[in-house]
Amino acid sequence: MAHRWTNDLTQADATPKAAFLNRRQLMAGVAGLASAGFAGSARAMDETLVPNSFEDITSYNNFYEFGTAKDDPKKYAHELTTQPWSIKIDGLVDNPGDYSFEEVLDGMTIEDRLYRFRCVEAWAMNIPWNGFELADLLQKVGVKPEAKYVAFETLVRPEEMRGQRRPTLAWPYREGLRLDEAMHPLTLMATGIYGETMPNQNGAPIRLVVPWKYGFKSIKSIVRITLTDQEPATSWNLANAREYGFYSNVNPNVDHPRWSQATHRMIGGGLFASREPTLMFNGYEKDVASLYEGMDLTKHF
């Protein structure tokens, strides 16, 4: 069931490492791939999404498990060992159990997905992820009909995750999705960036990516997935319910209480980068708006 969503944004999701090795080679590389018939169809041209460099993506991170400064994850995430890795899948599933990373990947199709990434702090990047659809994994383990939500947890290992030695948030980091959000073809379990193994600072070895929601929903370094019939508690909502709702869909019309969400700044634009308007559902409105039909998004923010 992979490939249910294809990137109609750009040819750039086929951009090889050249993009971060040398931005100037980008266009040449893409042109080469395109002529090799490798870069997707012609309809991929209605909009151009230029991926951020590998350097940008891996050096400006919010991963409070390693510290609250943007460069802390890059500095300290190497202290984390990601092998062996397993994910406990439990709750309302047919085949609960501890799945090794290899078992999780078994039967999954890894795709390239170039997505917009919009942080709740009003900055953004474009990131060429590699991963599989969460729906495929959920199908593999079998979701019971009573299940309505999916809850996720990040690893807790303060010896290797120094940020966890402070109570910045209530560890483990927790996130959750409604089942229909989790089953949406855009929802990705990412295992890499630019074809490289997921860097530790970006949530190795496996993380969630939900491109129409603020970045903090895309939980990193997942060790547990629980199917449940109740809306799960989520870390930022627990920390400050007034500021962070369960849904946290990107919405330029609903401001964060402390700052506007109408615009954002792309990372990598330097000291004189200008702000850009933020799009409803981060530009994925036609894909996901139907999930929220009839909901008051100012109330369910």
Partner: peptide, 18 residues
């Protein structure tokens, strides 16, 4: 610090850093 921001020394998002 302004110079660092101009030349990449403040990371990929120099405005907030400065």
């Amino acid at each position: 610090f302004f110079y660092l921001g101009l030349t990449g020394g403040l990371g990929p998002e120099p405005i907030n850093a400065l």
